[in-house]
Design a protein around this nucleic acid. Structure first.
Lengths: 244, 244
DNA sequence: CGGCAGCTTGACTACGGTCAATGACCGTGG
DNA sequence: CCACGGTCATTGACCGTAGTCAAGCTGCCG
């Protein structure tokens, strides 16, 4: 951890997606930060059922948040991107209710759980941001519920691709018209409640229709508008969100 | 509004499901409360797309939180019970992203949105509770996602019935072995991503199997254990939750 | 070169959706 | 008091989307 990033230099803060901080907030943030943690691809960041030790902010890398039914089926709840806060739920509720698994090597900023309370006492505006994040997260989950409940396979996949694409673009991770896409089809199908086989078929169809290109761990959006229509997503812009 | 309930006498507070409050918290709460609002059965408590004016706590009655896709399909995101906080998302994010519709006549405690910030400044422990509520809510939504993604029709319905049953029992609303169930099969199907027809078939099957009785706006749980097994819900107890 | 993980394709099946009709139970008004 | 219309529950017949099983691919790493 010798080369831990100082919050002052945190590359995430300059991203337009995030709300700016005041000097004093930043100062508090630096004291709040306990260190960094690196999780290799495939490793678990948080494990379902364990005591939660920390909150994390993703500095780099991607992950999936998932939970296991007792039948062994896995449901991917959401995809995790740089800047995302991980472990708020477990941090507040004390015990992790879901697993977070790194898909690529992931670097995390760690904040000790005990100091969350301190944050509520001394930094009401940061505490407010924290609740804001939770509310935004809840809103996205609502969208996900609507997707699984109402959209058919093609719409679901289009929806997921559009969401991920927009998010990564907003994070400035687009390069030559494509964004990194480290997730496997298996992750997608577990997220959307489809079988891997059918996920693949639909993906092939979208590709043949010339709407997306998905190869070599990268996603290229060829017909953003058309795909958004299929996905039943309106073109409303991504909201700005606070960062911790 | 002449006969508005004083927080001191709020019947919800005595319910074992909720965490107790200190004197000063209660005092603040009383000042926070702006009044009451009564919404008739079928009326909208919050309307998707509108500016949110208030936060609400449900004093009595039940409702559904739902969102509309542009195809006109409705997804019920969650069921709302007495003691639930409604409008936190809209309150924080400024605009309602979903609709909340009263299923029975519903009495709400209203809190002005502007004073939320005041709460964060002056009542850190209540603010913490607020975030706690958001985290719990998020956790439930995660469960819902897992249900829509992984469970088949029978499991979904069993799951919904068990959840609702347990919740109402925890609220002390059980009488003669049954709890009120004002929701229509249509609400259930919109919540679970099934057609009304199929929802009905499964319901009939569960009834014929002697597991539940569902009639006259009341739900009777005949084989709680067995139904929980079908639903793939473990028998873990309901968590205590803060009330606002 | 072999082995493994992930992707792709085909053939068959079934769960759940759609369409349509009927029934039960209201509240309202003639 | 009963006819009417509305909403909600129920049932049957048929169909289609997506799941399952199974086999070949492809590309990567040791």
């Amino acid at each position: 951890m010798a080369e831990a990033t100082d919050c002052l230099d945190c590359p995430l803060r300059c991203r337009p997606l995030f709300v700016p901080m005041t000097e004093s907030e930043l100062a508090f943030q630096r004291r709040f930060k306990a260190g960094e943690r690196v999780v290799p691809a495939g490793g678990d960041i948080i494990l379902q059922g364990h005591q939660a030790a920390s909150l994390y902010t993703v500095l780099s890398g991607m992950a999936v948040r998932s939970m296991m039914l007792e039948t062994g089926q896995r449901q991917v709840i959401s995809f995790v991107f740089p800047g995302d806060l991980v472990g708020l739920q477990s941090g507040i509720m004390g015990q992790a209710r879901h697993t977070v698994t790194a898909v690529t090597e992931t670097v995390l900023c760690t904040f000790p759980r005990e100091r969350v309370w301190e944050l509520f006492r001394n930094q009401p505006s940061r505490a407010y941001d924290l609740t804001w994040i939770a509310a935004v997260e809840e809103h996205f989950l609502g969208e996900t519920v609507a997707t699984l409940g109402q959209r058919d396979a093609t719409q679901r996949i289009a929806w997921a691709l559009v969401r991920i694409w927009r998010r990564l673009v907003a994070l400035g991770m687009e390069q030559d018209g494509s964004v990194p896409f480290p997730f496997r089809q298996h992750d997608l199908s577990d997220a959307l409640g489809l079988s891997v086989v059918h996920t693949n078929r639909v993906l092939v169809a979208l590709r043949n229709a010339g709407l997306v290109r998905l190869a070599g761990r990268r996603l290229e959006m060829l017909e953003h508008v058309q795909l958004s229509q299929i996905a039943l997503v309106d073109m409303e812009k991504e909201d700005v969100r606070p960062i911790l």
